[in-house]
């Protein structure tokens, strides 16, 4: 019975996350901690597994459609992976109650970000239309045809040029590296993908179109979460009896959501999600206060 509840909870978290552009990790940790009474660290370990599964499945599609920027993603994930390693080590030193309070703060931040997303999204859509008109996968495919010798160096051999894509030029790489370090620590500490940090950094600071930023962030999540998950795996922070059914549910939920996304009123869903996050943040804060 508990397996079924875990799978159903995973389906809900995966579907919610996929519909709203999150990995679902932000919901899985509270689900396991508050709903099933698991220790926070084991919940984070299970959540990292779920986040990797959804990232691998989604990034596979993004890469095959040429939406994700592989070179930019791999360059930034050098830093997310190193930071995730550090975050994973720190997670085993921080007391459970402190971690719960920090998680509550993260949930509150995500809730505020989601509540303000509507206005920001309108602005970004307009910006994207100016940045990269037309269909991104098609343009990427056309750009691939133009690249000499299969390299993405755009002629000048420069680092920035090699990381840029069709219709946009990467800027502020240093700030991107900084954002990646933050995202890596956040991922390993809280069992999330870190897209809530990476996507705004890539889009607003580095000038990457939102669609490419989302796809590239998704690609990076796998390696980032993997670096953190290995620490949890070897230190006994992953419970296979919990992680497996939850990951299966999240995978099914995310797959289902990709087919239902055009039928769902995302505005209402976002409001509901914000309400869930606020209540969950309060419960996590109470757990932290003890």
């Amino acid at each position: 019975m508990a397996e079924l509840l875990l799978i159903v909870g995973g389906v809900a978290a995966g579907a919610f996350g996929a519909l709203l552009g999150l990995g679902g990790g932000v919901l899985i940790v509270p689900l396991l901690t508050l709903g099933f009474g698991l220790p926070l660290r084991e919940s984070v370990g299970a959540s990292l597994v779920c986040v990797i599964v959804t990232s691998s499945a989604a990034a596979s599609v993004y890469l095959q459609r040429d939406v994700a920027n592989l070179r930019l993603g791999m360059t930034l994930e050098m830093f997310t992976a190193i930071a995730a390693m550090a975050g994973g080590l720190v997670a085993f030193l921080v007391p459970d109650r402190v971690l719960a309070l920090m998680f509550a703060a993260l949930l509150a931040y995500v809730a505020v970000t989601m509540a303000r997303a509507r206005d920001a999204r309108d602005g970004r859509v307009a910006q994207d239309a100016a940045d990269a008109p037309g269909d991104a996968p098609r343009e990427a495919a056309e750009d691939a045809e133009r690249r000499p010798g299969g390299t993405n160096t755009a002629g000048d051999g420069g680092l920035i040029a090699s990381l840029s894509g069709p219709g946009y030029r990467v800027r502020n790489l240093g700030l991107g590296v900084l954002g990646s370090l933050v995202a890596g620590v956040v991922s390993a500490l809280f069992g999330v993908g870190g897209g809530i940090v990476k996507v705004p950094v890539m889009n607003l600071i580095m000038g990457v179109p939102i669609r490419v930023a989302t796809a590239t962030s998704n690609l990076m999540i796998g390696v980032t979460a993997s670096a953190g998950a290995l620490i949890y795996l070897f230190r006994g922070g992953i419970d296979p009896y919990v992680a497996a059914p939850t990951a299966l549910g999240v995978f099914a939920g995310a797959s289902l959501a990709s087919r239902l996304s055009h039928r769902v009123d995302l505005g209402t869903l976002r409001l509901l999600f914000v309400a869930v996050l606020v209540v969950t943040a309060a419960q996590m804060a109470l757990r932290g206060i003890g």
Binding site: E3, V53, S56, A57, A59, S60, V61, Y62, L63, Q64, D66, A68, L70, A140, A141, A144, E145, R147, G150, T151, N152, G222, P240, A244, P245, A247, L248, F251
Partner: peptide, 28 residues
């Protein structure tokens, strides 16, 4: 060729995800 690399890497991820989920399902 560029583009082909992305597709190959995407295929690796897709196959990995399916194999992982199949093994997890067998374990459950």
């Amino acid at each position: 060729k560029a583009g082909r690399l992305e597709r190959t890497v995407g295929l690796v991820l897709g196959v990995g995800a399916i194999v992982s989920v199949a093994l997890l399902a067998m374990g459950i």
